[in-house]
Design a protein around this nucleic acid. Structure first.
Lengths: 164, 164
DNA sequence: CAGGTCGAGTTGAATGTTCAAGTCGCCCGG
DNA sequence: CCGGGCGACTTGAACATTCAACTCGACCTG
């Protein structure tokens, strides 16, 4: 990768400065998600995606969403969501019901137990977010990080940008 | 999560501004890695972690590293590395050899074929990094992103900060 | 030098994610 | 009203990662 004898001549390589920043970002992508995940799993038995599904449902007006919409908001494939909701349903935190008269649509509901679970899990999660991210950066740094993240997400998965 | 009737009173909640930035970062963590991974897998059949293992080996002076050191540089657990190197060895891109006279240490070598594979995979990967990240941000934005990433990584996994 | 223990690495089972079908309602053209 | 196609979801198999043993060599310590 840093080899001077690079095979493909027509590729715009990264400058040294760009390379450093990219490697820093890569390190962030490799280390932060596992750390967040570990805390949630340890203290609540939820993984990050399941947690976000519960959050998404809790934030919607009537505490339910069609699976397709939920997949977009929670930022995962429909398949991943289906498996995850299966687990959450097993645990009694979510229920599924067909939307009557609307094709094959299914809505996922957050149950009372699910809401309780979320309220139980949230404080520890927020504490960890504070400890690892929000509390480490100045407001300006955090704002710059968020702005850059939005730009990249918009390039990568425009559909997600709407829900920010 | 946004519920005003929050159960744990002693947790410092996030401000609205902090929440927006955190959600943007979260969206980045959920969307960018799959995008990077998809490109690598499509065009080279490697996943991100395997690619990083090859890069780490290619950047070390003699193109080999002990497994433990490799795990730190490539930023994964030893177990994950062992499985990954198993796959890379199957493909003929890496070989393993015991370090003689040094405990139970094992060094992983990058083969010629492995080097060729990496040189084949790198251009497409770099193009994608340009397309989704480096090319979207101003130099200042990129620098700010990198700096914030380093701060967070340092809080999360200090051992990784050395190799940036 | 016997026994303990620690660091390095491997292994296999359990879990989660992805990928490629497959199912099932609805709608639309004939 | 029938048949094909489409959108929404589910399912199961393949694959990767994690987690908890387990192996093995080196180094103490008595």
């Amino acid at each position: 990768m840093t080899s001077p004898t690079e095979a493909a001549e027509d590729v715009a390589w990264l400058s040294d400065a760009q390379l450093v920043e990219w490697k820093s970002l890569m390190a962030l992508l490799m280390t932060l998600p596992p750390a967040i995940d570990a805390q949630l799993k340890r203290e609540s038995g939820l993984n990050t995606f399941e947690y976000h599904v519960l959050v998404a449902l809790s934030e919607s007006p009537e505490r339910w969403l069609p699976m397709s919409d939920l997949a977009v908001v929670a930022q995962g494939s429909l398949s991943r969501l289906s498996h995850a909701v299966g687990r959450l349903e097993q645990a009694g935190w979510v229920t599924r019901r067909a939307c009557p008269g609307a094709g094959r649509r299914v809505k996922a509901h957050l149950t009372e137990a699910g809401m309780a679970k979320l309220e139980d899990a949230a404080p520890g999660h927020v504490r960890e977010v504070q400890r690892l991210v929000v509390g480490r950066l100045t407001p300006e740094q955090l704002a710059a990080l968020g702005e850059a993240a939005r730009v990249i997400v918009d390039a990568t998965e425009p559909r997600c940008t709407e829900h920010l």
